[in-house]
Design a protein around this nucleic acid. Structure first.
Lengths: 219, 219
DNA sequence: GATGATTTGTACGTATGTATA
DNA sequence: ATATACATACGTACAAATCAT
């Protein structure tokens, strides 16, 4: 090795994580080119671990690779996007059903408490705080399904779509609407009504379809 | 480049495909070590594309990688296995529901025809032929859901579990049982009864749980 | 427990393929 | 349309970690 850098063994995973976060956070927009050398410099490593990281991100669906043409942040066609939303809706709906059947007492209480606390955010129009609560809400339902593999898939499909989300809570009306839907879902969860929770969750997510758009910023 | 070999640009994908097939076919057993150099020789390439292929297979869940300790065919704990079966059951159940709603006329007819033809296999105890039909049946239902992303996930979760499947149709009784369950599913699909198709498919797959075992051959 | 052997991890070189003037 | 430039794909080299003795 030429340079005397830290040397460990999970360099690639670090890069995967950082790039995934950057993409989901919108730091790289869909369609944007991911140049190996540029990334290598950014992370102070050679191109080799960057290549591996890009492969893994491609396998996750966050970037797409054209043979001999390099990697870009995944762009989704209208149809592709619709399909992924359906996948997310179905996965989270399943999570909701299982969560209703499997949630522990403390989990139910804490979910309800958080939901009630969020009412304040809606009333004050605190969109960013509500967005954070929304993310937490869905993460909780996912993990309450007591199936880490399933939760992971649901979480992944959610992050895969995040880059295509136009400000979901830009208008107070949307906040209120989302809150009402959450309310019904929470009720179903607390009543251990799996079928109802499943249906409500599916509709809740399919309803957000309109706030998704392919190719937010091209080049 | 040093040697004048074919040179194309999708070497890695080829290796991923071949390795995935080999693993699913049981040519490599769970827990078996996947030595980079050995694989490189086997495919007449250097370690670089092999490494990339292993990364992708790890992302798919077919192999697991320990840092600095190499890659092995993924081994699943009892719990992990149960979770993955549940995931497969839910995914295919969703596919079945959507398929019931979205299948085209020709698709329905051909599904029914194939199913009827399979009766002969059951009667004659042609287990291998029936296994092939079974795979085809599930692939058809998956693709009839008209959501390639969803189908792909369902197919992936199925292949991920294949290495852990002990001969599913070893006994004539199992063949007959499977056939009856398929029959009910087909009926629901033909009647466009999504809810029934979903439930039946879920039960059909969860019922096969008993024929799954972790770590078929250790080392 | 230390030393040598094996194998993984990262750097870097070079050719091929793609885009651009 | 041809040539030039540039980025990617794969190979090889060597360091670091693990394994075996």
């Amino acid at each position: 090795m030429q340079q005397g850098l830290p040397r460990k063994g999970d360099t690639v995973d670090d890069i995967v994580g950082q790039l995934a976060d950057a993409i989901v956070a919108g730091q790289f927009r869909p369609g944007e080119k991911l140049d190996e050398l540029t990334l290598a410099n950014r992370f102070f490593v050679s191109r080799t671990p960057v290549r591996e990281a890009l492969s893994q991100l491609a396998a996750m669906g966050l970037v797409s690779r054209r043979p001999n043409r390099g990697a870009v942040v995944a762009e989704l066609s209208e149809e592709h996007l619709a399909n992924l939303i359906e996948v997310m809706a179905e996965l989270e709906a399943v999570c909701a059903r299982l969560a209703a059947e499997r949630m522990s007492g403390p989990e139910r209480r804490s979910l309800e408490a958080d939901h009630l606390a969020a009412a304040e955010m809606v009333r004050l129009g605190r969109t960013d705080a509500y967005a954070a609560y929304d993310t937490l809400f869905h993460a909780r339902v996912q993990s309450a399904a007591r199936n880490p593999q399933l939760s992971e898939m649901a979480a992944l499909s959610r992050s895969r779509l995040t880059p295509f989300r136009t400000d979901l809570f830009a208008y107070p009306a949307r906040l209120a609407r989302s809150y009402e839907e959450h309310e019904m879902i929470v009720t179903a969860l607390l009543q251990a009504d799996g079928a109802k929770a499943e249906t409500l969750m599916r509709q809740h997510i399919l309803g957000s379809k309109a706030q998704m758009t392919p190719a937010p910023v091209a080049r």
